[in-house]
Design a protein around this nucleic acid. Structure first.
Lengths: 340, 340
DNA sequence: CTGAAAGCGCTTACAG
DNA sequence: CTGAAAGCGCTTACAG
């Protein structure tokens, strides 16, 4: 038995397909009599509209694309959840793409999304130097950048948190505790969030006349293992830092594992803080001082902005960036005696 | 400027749309001369095929639906990641639905997916008693259950881990350590994984002549806050348990927070273990003993099974369930003196 | 090897 | 209020 179509419903109800379509979309101007007959026919046949056919006709798929670089990162997971909630509330479905920090995979996904005629795209690009992405941004499907943006994309709004103030507060906190040997496990310079956190860290230190030597700046790739390696290298230094800042939660996890493995005590022997806050930071001994992003708000705001752009058919400026917040817990303590 | 279509390409290349279509799908039997002209025209026009139109025609969207109950749960996140990887490798996109443990939302999602003509559905249902889902399972789009299944769904395969052996090992471990007052923070009985873990726990205890009183069985909903509440109630008992098992990672997080707040030391004052393993369990003091599921394997296997069903156009039996594994760390210790 | 034509399942001016 | 007809952008027998 073939899946029933409007035609079948029309025949069953004794009306035209136009009338069926009208009652389906709740349009005014169908006699009560016919409306009821159509509804009954739909019921009898178990008719379910074909959204693909509808999309082809109305040129809208009610589908959004979300391409992020790492679904396993709790930050993105939270964001994705908020995006999905907001999208669902507005009647949009979400196609998810995991670019895995790989520009080539990212481009592939974008292409598929475009072919599938998504109404809009939420994108957290793998790197900010991405000339090949400029084309899609300047295309006719609305794009909003999430957490990260690309160079020269004047057209598309970006929704992200501003972490600079919080990083500054963190550095101040560390300096007040007596630390002078500050190190950072940074994200890649090629990603705006990586760059911003590094620069904020260096600026905050510089403003307070603290120079951070190159060997105290380790670059990771925002993934766990790179945080692990970076911390190991820092610990192996002739003169290791007394305080370390990891630029995202995954690298913090790796760094903490390295600390654990090396048997280095926090905060007695080393102070530690992380960008991104996760629920389990509060359970560690000591609990980890961290910079919390307004994750859910970012996702919700990005999604509703995109949907607005789709509706209004024009680009809007992104909202003012929300501020990340420093949450002081116990993982940063006074520098140990005789170290400064 | 209108988005170019096959028609435009055909005109530009001086061939028919049929020929354009043939070179697009890489079909044999197009003269080299025309093939080159078509390719050049595509390039010049910046033509991008419309997948919606194609889908309508070929009756396949190369899209899978994944509806899970909680994207914020690291277990599902890992699974989703593996699903997405596998789907992408096979050229399928993934529409994500977060049912939020709500059967109504779940049904809504399923309906949307069906309307959008997905080629197959991966489903982790909110509850196993779900007669309304039987219709979709028996419909013509292939469904595979992931981690959870529903009652009476003989048709669709289910891919999940079998946790019974590992739960048994855990109970044995606890009893060897001298524990007799064992408690469980269980998931809902309405969900197969919740029921299975509870039954395995009770059976394992019963087989060793340990009775678990009702007050040692607290039901949560697999979310953080329910684990928190459950643990508080257990601690408030006149005679609290000496060992507690949380039936998933989110409830374990909540339970650990309650323990932390109450200042109860693990394992000196209470032993603790969790179903599901997460990376940060290893960082806690003491590290948490847990039951690890083959998460990535579950996702990959479910996705490839579904794709196989789509291709072969028939239902297969699910694979033998994979075994979950007990990972003993430091959070279960000898029962304290004078307690048995 | 190639093209004209039909058709996938909808929606929407248009005419009445 | 209603229906006949065109058309969204593809693909695929069919005939040559």
């Amino acid at each position: 038995m073939r899946t029933p179509t409007v035609k079948d419903v029309a025949r069953e109800a004794g009306v035209s397909t136009a009338t069926v379509s009208r009652v389906l979309s709740g349009k005014e101007g169908v006699s009560e009599d016919k409306r009821l007959r159509v509804l009954a026919a739909i019921e009898r046949l178990g008719y379910r509209p074909n959204a693909v056919a509808r999309s082809l006709r109305v040129e809208s798929t009610r589908t959004l694309g979300l391409v992020i670089s790492n679904v396993t990162n709790p930050f993105f997971t939270e964001v994705a959840r908020a995006v999905e909630d907001e999208a669902a509330r507005e009647g949009y479905s979400l196609i998810l793409g995991n670019a895995d920090e790989d520009p080539a995979k990212e481009e592939l996904y974008l292409n598929v999304l475009l072919q599938k005629q998504v109404d809009g795209i939420l994108l957290s690009p793998a790197r900010s130097d991405a000339p090949h992405l400029l084309k899609v941004v300047e295309g006719k499907v609305p794009v909003v950048f999430l957490d990260r943006s690309i160079d020269g994309a004047a057209g598309a709004p970006v929704v992200r948190a501003d972490g600079r103030g919080a990083v500054d507060s963190l550095v101040e906190h560390l300096i007040e505790l007596g630390h002078r040997r500050l190190a950072i496990i940074s994200g890649p310079r090629e990603i705006i969030s990586g760059r911003e956190r590094l620069e904020a860290f260096l600026n905050a230190a510089g403003r307070r006349n603290i120079r951070i030597p190159d060997e105290y700046i380790k670059f990771g790739n925002f993934r766990r293992s790179s945080g692990f390696e970076a911390m190991r290298k820092l610990l192996a230094l002739a003169e290791p830092p007394t305080a370390v800042f990891a630029a995202n939660n995954l690298m913090a996890l790796g760094a903490l594992q390295a600390l654990e493995e090396a048997g280095v005590r926090i905060p007695q022997e080393i102070s530690f803080a992380s960008f991104d806050d996760v629920p389990w930071f509060g359970l560690l001994k000591p609990p980890i001082t961290a910079i919390a992003q307004p994750t859910r708000a970012l996702g919700a705001s990005a999604a509703s902005l995109l949907i607005e752009m789709i509706r209004e058919c024009r680009s809007t400026k992104g909202p003012e960036p929300m501020e990340a917040q420093l949450v002081i817990r116990g993982s940063c303590g006074p520098v140990r005696e005789g170290v400064r």
